[in-house]
C-alpha cells in the first residue's frame, strides 16, 4: 500500500543522523520532526532566524516574537539561538546546515526541481527555497509520486519554472525512495505493497532498477 504523508515523513526521518542541523520546508517535511529518533541529537533550523526549534507552545503561551518560517507560533529548546536573516542564510549558503528536506511540484532526472510557480496562477514567491536548493549539499525531496491529476512528478525534464538546477539527491514519495544519478532515477526502495511496475507506471523520467528492490522499513 502506498504511504500517506506521515509514512513519507517517517521514512525520511531515518535519514536524519546524530549531530545534524536540519532545515524543514512547509508541508510533509514539517512532519519529519515528529519521527526523528529520540536517542540522537538534532537541531532544526528555521530560515526566519532560529536554530533549536521546539514544538508548538501550549495554549496561552504563544509569543508573536517567536515563530517559524511558516509564520506559526513555536517554542525553542535549551541551546537554541536567534539570529538575523543574513546570518540565517549564511548557515544555509555556507553549507553549515547538513540536511534540507523540502516539497516539490516536479523533480527531473537531472536533479532539477520546480516548486515555486505555476504560470497563470497567483505566484506567492520562492521564499527561501532557491537559496536552500542552490546551496545544500544534501537535499531530500518529500512529495507524492503523482499530482492530483495522476500525472508523474518525476520527469525527464521539469515543465514548470525551476527553483534550482541539478540539486536534488534523493526523493521519498508515497511509492518509493529514489536517488538521482547521472543516468536517471535509481530505485532504492519501494513502499510496502507497491510493485516495481507500479513505480515504473508512475514515473515519467528514466527509472533505473537494479536487482531486487527492497521494501521500505518503517517503524513508528
Amino acid at each position: 500500500m502506498a504511504l500517506d504523508k506521515n509514512g513519507i515523513a517517517k521514512r525520511i526521518a531515518k535519514e536524519v543522523q546524530d549531530g545534524y542541523y536540519v532545515n524543514l520546508g512547509i508541508g510533509i517535511p514539517t512532519l519529519v520532526a515528529n519521527y526523528v529518533r529520540d536517542d540522537i541529537e538534532v537541531e532544526f533550523q528555521s530560515e526566519n532566524g532560529v536554530l533549536g526549534m521546539g514544538p508548538f507552545p501550549f495554549e496561552g503561551e504563544e509569543d508573536a516574537d517567536i515563530i517559524n518560517a511558516g509564520k506559526q507560533t513555536i517554542t525553542t529548546l535549551p541551546g537554541a539561538s536567534f539570529f538575523d536573516s543574513a546570518m540565517s542564510f549564511s548557515m544555509i549558503r555556507g553549507q553549515h546546515v547538513h540536511l534540507t528536506i523540502l516539497g516539490a511540484m516536479e523533480v527531473a532526472e537531472n536533479g532539477d526541481i520546480a516548486n515555486w510557480k505555476i504560470p497563470g496562477r497567483m505566484v506567492k514567491g520562492m521564499g527561501g527555497a532557491m537559496d536552500l536548493v542552490a546551496s545544500a549539499e544534501n537535499i531530500i525531496v518529500a512529495m507524492m509520486h503523482t499530482n492530483k491529476a495522476g500525472e508523474s512528478k518525476l520527469l525527464k525534464r521539469c515543465t514548470l519554472p525551476l527553483t534550482g538546477v541539478g540539486c536534488v539527491k534523493k526523493i521519498v514519495t508515497n511509492l518509493a525512495v529514489l536517488e538521482v544519478t547521472n543516468s536517471g532515477f535509481k530505485l532504492l526502495e519501494r513502499a510496502p505493497g507497491v510493485s516495481v511496475e507500479d513505480i515504473q507506471k508512475a514515473t515519467e523520467g528514466t527509472l533505473i532498477v537494479e536487482g531486487d528492490i527492497p521494501v521500505m522499513v518503517i517503524k513508528n
Binding site: E61, D65, I67
Partner: peptide
C-alpha cells in the same frame, strides 16, 4: 499590536 499570523498550539 504584535499580531500573530498563524496561531499554532498544542494541548496540555
Amino acid at each position: 499590536e504584535k499580531r500573530i499570523e498563524q496561531r499554532t498550539v498544542r494541548k496540555r
